[in-house]
Amino acid sequence: MEEEPGQKTRWSQKAGFRVGVVLVCVLVIFGIVRQMSVPKSFGQYGYYRGDNVEEWVSMDQTFAPGNQVCAQCHAQEVQAAAQAEHNQLDCQSCHGPMLAHVKQPNQTHPKVAGNVDLCGACHREMVGRSKDNIRTVQVGSHSGGLDCVRCHDPHQPYAKIGGGRQ
């Protein structure tokens, strides 16, 4: 050491200490900023915000769980449909989302349009749609513009027209 005898430098005057103070300040500020900007549950299960899983799970549904729910009130219709050609269908395939109706049956009265747009979604003759998979018609010439439900009961498609396939 090349210090002059009898004159000891105060430790707080040393260059290393001053650099250290700056370093500690930087680290502390970094720690605080990080603490504030990274969400609490980040990294809980992986490199993402763990709380988000619960947010997705608790999102509202629109479609009811299935036909068994519908059958609690509309047993006749569900049973009729179950015995006919449309037995594979979920009620909501045609009737649309019904969970609001299930929760408050008197408040929401859903309507279903029994027209060629609805039925034609499956039964319209179209390139790509094989007749082996589904019975198709040329909707224009088949109904002449009338709604399908005039002749067909969607729950039992051939019941109204004598029970037999044309």
Binding site: F63, P65, G66, Q88, L89, D90, S93, P97
Partner: peptide, 10 residues
Amino acid sequence: MQPACVEVCP
């Protein structure tokens, strides 16, 4: 429940 698309597929 089933996904909505699975639910309604005729």
